[in-house]
Computed example of a mutant assay.
Amino acid sequence: MPLFRNIHHNPHFFTDPQKFDPSRFEVAPKPNTFMPFGSGVHACPGNELAKLEMLIVTHHLVSKFSNIFVGFCRWVVVGSESGIQYGPFPVPQQGLRTRFWKESTT
């Protein structure tokens, strides 16, 4: 089984790989350097479902918390960001509690 975590955290492919930086994907990464769902016959069978779920969650967060006519969306992590455990998938050790609210522009 390929060690995708090692590929995804390789400083030869990603600048400062330990830092959360979504903007690094504004330019497509080199082939076979970012494979969050595996590849080939060993690809995750639920990858399309996972992508759809992420789109649905993003849609609801954006549509309910950042309407430009009503206010601005604010998101904060509540509690500890104490680290990530790998086994075999990366998840926050203490969960990732988040608070969302709207702020009025007026």
Rank of each mutant, 00 (worst) to 15 (best):
E103L: 11
A28Q: 15
T106E: 09
P22R: 05
I56F: 13
S80T: 03
Q85H: 10
R97Y: 08
V91Y: 06
D16W: 02
F69L: 14
T105A: 05
L3K: 04
G79T: 05
D16E: 14
M35H: 00
E26F: 13
G38I: 02
K102R: 15
Q94C: 12
I56C: 08
V70C: 06
F25K: 07
N67D: 15
V57D: 01
H59L: 14
R5S: 11
L96P: 00
A50P: 03
I84W: 08
R5I: 09
K102I: 15
L55Q: 14
H8R: 06
P45V: 15
E26P: 00
Q94P: 00
H9M: 14
F13Q: 02
C73G: 15
V57W: 07
F4N: 02
R24S: 07
W75D: 00
G38Q: 01
N10Q: 07
P36V: 07
W75I: 15
K51F: 01
P88H: 02
V70M: 11
Q93I: 15
G46T: 04
I7L: 15
C44E: 04
N47R: 13
G38C: 01
I7F: 08
S82K: 13
P22G: 03
V78S: 01
M54K: 06
H12C: 08
F13W: 15
F20S: 01
F69T: 10
K102Y: 09
H9N: 12
Q94A: 13
P17I: 06
V70E: 15
S66C: 12
L96Y: 00
G71P: 05
Q18R: 10
H60V: 07
P29F: 13
T106I: 06
P31Q: 10
P31S: 10
K30D: 12
V57N: 03
T33N: 03
S80N: 06
F72S: 13
R24Q: 09
L96V: 00
A43D: 01
S104R: 12
M54V: 12
F25D: 03
I56Y: 09
H8L: 04
P31Y: 11
C73P: 05
V76K: 07
V27Q: 14
F25R: 07
K51A: 11
M1C: 10
S82G: 15
D21G: 00
A50M: 08
T15A: 14
E81C: 04
G40V: 03
Q18D: 15
G87H: 12
D21H: 04
G40H: 03
H60Y: 13
